[in-house]
């Protein structure tokens, strides 16, 4: 009996300890970045241009770049992703082909992001001749986001009971009107949660934009879509590996990392809030 108790105690320690380690990982990451990043954070940091060879000043162009980039990603991936999900769930007949398509889309979500970068380079930069630009990069991230948006939207649509659709159709309403007035409003919070989480991923991605348009430095702001751009995640990569005065810019790198993580967390919190509100309403 004594032996069993010891085994029990030991197992409990291993399981609890493992969980503690996982939690500690997050704790260490956040503590290290925030404790070293916050001292350099200021209004000036987020609202001014880098100066003196990027050793001083702020990260305004990188913030604007990331926002514009995510905006293009949204404009491309949300309408197409939602439309594709609606087609798959509402119009397409459930046959083998649809199932194959669905499985392919799910697996595309697991394709390494750098491969999307290659595709973006071949398609947008070269074939469509957009050059290295914020448009090419935004569309590339849009492609990366599509599988996630399609899958989460479909899941949200699936949760709407068929009885609702049938009831609407029985009233003589057309299928599109059913989708527009009955299905979509009900599924909206679910879709929104998926979209926001996907965009928070896209905003933090670096690999797909590496060769589709991101730049070290740009000396002004322009909203033109064929412009190269600065982005927060790439700025962090550049400050921590490419800059020539690496020690001098470490505090800036930490502060950039803090801003990036805060931005991503903010998006996640919004998504959780939407999901939470939706749950409590049901």
């Amino acid at each position: 009996m004594e032996k069993k108790r010891i085994i029990g105690l030991f197992s409990g320690l291993v399981l609890g300890g493992s969980t503690l380690i996982v939690v500690l990982f997050l704790g260490i990451i956040l503590w290290d970045i925030f404790s070293k990043g916050f001292p350099s954070l200021s209004w000036n940091f987020v609202s001014s241009f880098p100066t003196n060879g990027m050793t001083q000043g702020g990260i305004l162009p990188a913030i604007i770049g990331t926002v514009l980039l995510t905006f293009i990603t949204t404009l491309f991936s949300v309408p197409f992703g939602v439309a594709c999900a609606i087609y798959l769930n509402e119009y397409a007949r459930p046959n083998t082909l649809t199932n194959v398509i669905r499985a392919s889309i799910r697996n595309l979500a697991g394709v390494p992001s750098i491969i999307y970068g290659l595709f973006g380079l071949a398609l947008f930069v070269q074939a469509l001749n957009f050059g290295t630009s914020i448009l090419s990069a935004g569309l590339t991230l849009g492609l990366l986001s599509l599988p996630y948006i399609i899958t989460t939207t479909e899941e949200a649509l699936k949760r709407i009971p068929n009885s609702l659709r049938e009831a609407a159709l029985a009233l003589g309403v057309t299928q599109f009107e059913t989708i527009k007035d009955v299905v979509l409003p009900k599924a909206l919070p679910g879709i929104l949660t998926g979209v926001i989480l996907t965009l928070s991923r896209a905003a933090g991605e670096t690999a797909p934009i590496l060769f589709t348009g991101v730049a070290f430095f740009i000396n002004g702001i322009s909203a033109s879509p064929n412009q190269e751009f600065m982005a927060l995640p790439y700025h962090l990569y550049m400050l921590s590996t490419q800059h020539n005065e690496i020690e001098q810019v470490r505090p800036l790198a930490y502060a950039t990392a803090s801003v990036l993580i805060l931005l991503v967390f903010l998006l996640n919190i919004i998504a959780f809030y939407v999901r939470f509100k939706n749950r409590t309403q049901d």
């Binding site: 880098p50 100066t51 003196n52 060879g53 990027m54 991101v214 730049a215 070290f216 430095f217 740009i218 000396n219 002004g220 322009s222 412009q227 190269e228 751009f229």
Partner: peptide, 19 residues
């Protein structure tokens, strides 16, 4: 980067992106 930065102050009409 330094040249582009300074260039912007003196001649802000032309954008320069550096990688």
């Amino acid at each position: 980067v330094l040249l582009a930065e300074q260039y912007y102050f003196e001649n802000s009409g032309l954008l320069v992106s550096v990688s």
